[in-house]
Amino acid sequence: MEQFGIWLAALLTIGIISFLYKDNILYKACEAIFVGVSAGYWFVTYFWDNLYRKFYLGIQGAELSDQIFLWMAVALGVMMLTRLFDKIGWLSRWPLAFIIGATAGLYMMTYFVSNAFVQIGATITPPPSMETIGDKISFVLIAIGTFCGLIYFFFSKEHKGAFGGAAKVGIWFLMVTFGASFGYTVMSRMSLMLGRFDFLFGEWLGLIK
């Protein structure tokens, strides 16, 4: 059984890699298996984790207010299914509106605090070691870069003259950031493929001990 599992995994691995050459029957088969099996897997996970554990077990012995709360969630879920019926399909917009309103409200504050507020605070907070001239230059450079980056994102003014110049410096800083992220990721991506080759030539074919 274990050998069967390894062979299956090896065939699926080869099938996916073969896409790099071109779309082919093996890749199509892998894709079809992947979509069908994973969709089923996720539904099973949702069912047992959310509907059974969070809802069904949640209402067992819970206080009335908690029970009502959970039943309200189920009611919204059921409203979602009204889409299947033309005449009352518009009811499905209610849970959708609830989700959109809640996401907008919740994340508006979260992003405002964690992104805008905290980052401004971090930019003006001197590092613990601001002793060498290099530390001071870095501190000011980060502030200049952040400032110019914000100018680049300014919508109300055309990027012309000195303002345009600052926006240009802003985009240079953004490019350094993108380059840094890019360079940082390249190596780790290479190791992923080495991992798959290790499986094929080691675990499957036994060529690497």
Binding site: I16, F19, K28, F34, A39
Partner: peptide, 14 residues
């Protein structure tokens, strides 16, 4: 398609 990140990517690539 599917909730699975790379399952979805496989299908979109195809």
């Amino acid at each position: 398609v599917t909730d699975e990140q790379f399952g979805y990517v496989a299908a979109v690539n195809g």
